[in-house]
Computed example of a mutant assay.
Amino acid sequence: MTDSPRTVNRWLDAYIQQCSTFDGLAQALARSPVHESSDCRLAIDAGTALVRRAAEAGTLRADVDADDVWHLAGAIAWVSGQLPLDPDRRTRLLEMMLDGIRRR
């Protein structure tokens, strides 16, 4: 099964939006891998599978791995939640991130 880039984009947008909902969550997720006992493990595993399938399909740069994606997504979630709030910031930063990790 190959996921379309659109599926990955939608999943990442939802993940980033959720991570920016609670103060401190984005920082915690961006700092280090999530422990197996964490409630976030399912989200990380699902996203890692999407990243892996995108890499196998050749849509990501060869030097990108799931940890890179989590660190970037966590940073976007944190920045998106900072004041002054800009409703378009998350979308803009996600598009920049996706442009940067796509295979050229």
Rank of each mutant, 00 (worst) to 15 (best):
I16E: 01
W70F: 14
D39A: 15
M97K: 03
M97G: 00
D3Q: 08
A75N: 14
P33R: 13
G100R: 05
R31S: 12
D23Q: 15
V51S: 00
G74Q: 03
R31L: 12
I101Y: 07
L42W: 07
S32P: 01
N9Y: 00
L29V: 11
L60V: 13
T91G: 13
I101E: 08
M96E: 14
V51N: 01
S80D: 06
S38R: 10
G58T: 10
A55I: 01
A43F: 02
Q27A: 15
R90D: 03
T91D: 14
D88K: 08
R103G: 11
A62H: 10
S37P: 02
A30M: 07
I16Y: 01
L60I: 13
W70S: 05
R10A: 14
D3K: 02
G81R: 08
F22G: 01
R90S: 10
Q18S: 09
R103P: 00
L85C: 10
P87R: 14
A73M: 02
V51M: 09
G24M: 06
L85P: 08
W11Y: 15
Q82I: 10
R41S: 08
M96R: 11
T7W: 02
D63F: 08
R10Q: 11
V79R: 13
D39T: 09
L42K: 08
I101T: 13
A43V: 03
L72M: 10
D39N: 11
L12Q: 00
G81V: 05
S38I: 05
R52L: 11
D67Q: 15
P87F: 12
A54Q: 05
R53P: 01
D23A: 14
I16T: 06
T2E: 11
R31A: 15
L29H: 03
E56Q: 14
T91W: 04
R89Y: 04
R103V: 14
R103F: 14
R104M: 09
C40A: 15
G100H: 09
G58F: 06
D45K: 07
A43W: 03
D86F: 04
S37N: 07
D86M: 06
D13P: 00
D39F: 04
R53A: 14
P33C: 12
D65F: 09
V69N: 00
L60N: 05
A54R: 00
L25T: 07
A28N: 07
T59A: 13
A14I: 05
G58E: 08
H35P: 10
I76P: 00
P84T: 09
S32W: 00
T2S: 13
R102E: 15
I101V: 15
A46P: 02
R104V: 10
C19V: 02
D23V: 14
P84K: 04
D65Q: 11
D99Q: 13
G58A: 10
E56T: 01
N9E: 15
L93W: 11
I44Y: 04
C40V: 09
L12H: 03
T2K: 12
L29G: 03
M97D: 05
E95Q: 12
S37Q: 07
R102H: 14
P33Y: 05
L98H: 08
D88C: 04
R90K: 15
I44M: 13
W70Y: 09
A28Q: 11
P87A: 15
